[in-house]
Design a protein around this nucleic acid. Sequence first.
RNA 1: GGCGGAGUAGCUCAGUUGGUUAGAGCAGCGGAAUCAUAAUCCGCGUGUCGGGAGUUCAAAUCUCUCCUCCGCUACCA
Length: 492
Amino acid sequence: MKSYYITTPIYYVNDKPHIGHAYTTILADTLARFQRLVEQESFFLTGLDEHGLKVQQAAEKNGMSAKDHCDKMAPAFLELWDKLNIQYSDFIRTTEDRHVKIVQNVLNEVHENGDIYQDEYEGWYSVAEERFITDKELDSGLFREAKKIKERNYFFKMSKYQDALIEKIEKNENFIQPTTRKNEVLGFLKQDLSDLCISRPKSRLEWGIEIPFDKDYVTYVWFDALINYISAPKYSEDDNHFKQFWPADVHLIGKDILTTHSVYWSTMLMSLNIPLPKTIFAHGWWLTDEKKMSKSLGNVVSPLTLVDKFGVDAVRYYLMSEMVLGSDATFSMESFIKRYNSDLANDLGNLVSRVSTLINRNFDSTIPLSKDSNNDLSNEISNINIKDKLDNFQMDRLIQNIMDFVRSINGYMEKNQPWKLVKEDKKLAGNVLYNAAESLRIATVMLSPIMPEKCKEILNALGATSSSLDWGNLKSGEKIPESNPIFPRIIE
RNA sequence: GGCGGAGUAGCUCAGUUGGUUAGAGCAGCGGAAUCAUAAUCCGCGUGUCGGGAGUUCAAAUCUCUCCUCCGCUACCA
């Protein structure tokens, strides 16, 4: 049986991890956890992109080898993923032997297919930066010592696949998402595609994967990096294993690397004659509103600093609920606190408190008996279609649906008033509390991919042992602990 | 310049193939309740659906036009 295979980009080690990296990775983690919850096994790949000029230069600057530089940078990412509770299935680094070998396999294969040839590359070269620069960069005037030079290199016949790629994109509605990005790529492909220069002479750049059929060259870093998506599941090394994962269900990317994925990567796969990923999804960016931020809480610069202050799950919840996938979102302290207080503290956390306190005081800390599995709440749960929202990448809507249900539980409490009812008809009050607690259990299970730790706490507070989404899995007679606020209100 | 997207309540956004008095959350106002983290529940919106014109019995939803904002226009990673 094939696993749901989801990837993040592999992050370039030139940079320390920031909110962008964290967001994509949390999103992938959340989607992977949701898949495990509702449907199937999932395999979640992330990792690091470690070759290329900028890494080499950064290493030289610090007086260390490129490899040492990478080894020094890697822990920063691993520690952050740990802190953010990222449950990746595999973490790949492009300097690992397993990757290098497969990149060379791919190069050989593409070469043998006749899709690689040698030619002269002519472009503007910046002596100061030691690299070729784009026309745009030249126009910017930031690169003074620019001169036009020629260099012999290897090229990948990307243009050969242009028409086939256009057809694939047009035919497969879900291939490039959201639609606006799909249109961008199609617009891009209206112009003639040129071939891609995929080598760099070692005389200029040493830090890369050697071209297997010419030891004077290393591989262009993008060509190397993209292959991680198939090198991790062992393409060309273990066919059965590979087929359990490929094609990927979704490559999650930021909108800045849309072209490399939808054009470079797709044509590479076409040359290898293996299927394209089912979906490439480009999400938006987090914009920050510095003014608002500094007003509320001093000099908070990054949402990441909120993790220490308010907990990883609150931040995960905020990031997942606040961004409409595909659009940009604005981060502000103000919106974080609003979201936290109204959703987590007032609606959800407070509900846990009121239910558990009522059970503690009136039912000897024991989950009361359930009388009817058919009630307003159990019926309302069926309105939440997790799979539909996941298939359409509507994380914000999914959360909204779940939180609407949580609000309904509060409404149910208000309508049935178990604190009064308990004095008149204890059995009936018990039933009301059971229904509320069981609804809360299911809502919490639904939220657990987003807030794994906090949801465990809530389930524990409810004496719940089952993580089933079906009604009736909260056991009557189960003891519950004294209640403690799960999400203490943030008071400014 | 070319191609594409967006402009709906104070804020963030829903509004499927045109059809009852345009919706949700948050914020605001009023009330109820007091089990609960002063949390909860109920009620309250005279929004020119960016402007204008057109098609239609009927348009936020289709057509045209204008205005504003944004994205893409590759071989840096």
